[in-house]
Amino acid sequence: MTETTTKTTTKTSSLDRLAIPLIIVGALLTTTAFVLAFTLAPLVMGAEVDTPALIGGKMVANKLLLSQKIFYFHMPVAVTSFVALLFTAIYGVLFLAKRERRYDLNAKVATEVALVFILMTMVSGELWTRYEWGVWWVWEPRLTTYFILMLLIIGYFILRGAIDDAERRATYASVFGIIAFIDVPICFLITRMVPSSVHPVIFRTDSGLPPPMLIPLLIALFGMFCIAFGLYRTRLREQRLRERLTALKESLED
């Protein structure tokens, strides 16, 4: 028992040492990507609407000029939140299969990271909506499904907070994490099912983006992944240390 615990702590510490450098690398990469977005990427290409469309009572034509630059932040952050939620679901399945507490902790921390990125996506999207459409909110399919996703993740934490028994909390949270993940593919695919005029389909084989736009986007995406993973490892380490501290405190009291 003691052997396995020491083993896990040494194994995690090597990954944990990477956490802070990864956050820094991610910050540098995303900054580079945003600079490139203004220098390398052309003004408006891939994100055009096919025909002028009426959204929120306003005509939106092919003039998504400078404000389109938020795309290089908005889209990588959103994709990162999806990936983090994928890990929530995977760790949920692992917990239900193996009944080990650490998977529940992993799932919880992954969901926390996901919530941070979901909030960043919502804020950046809102800024764009307000600037470009002159309204704060529109019940547009992608916006709505993503908003629902945010509510589900907030519900996940409310659920965790409402259960005292650790084993039961872990089980219920795992189950809910798996069910909530069903909304992710819906949100991802909704622009393919219900054509949305502002969210272009990025992932496709006939390449929607020319290289000068694709390069900053991919750098930003990779940078966001680095930041998310760094945050995840840091938070996981903090949680583990906290658990050890409580265990130590309890043993000292005895």
Partner: peptide
């Protein structure tokens, strides 16, 4: 309600 309404939204 907190869990049910978002989940049944679609």
């Amino acid at each position: 309600a907190v869990l049910f309404i978002p989940l049944t939204y679609p």
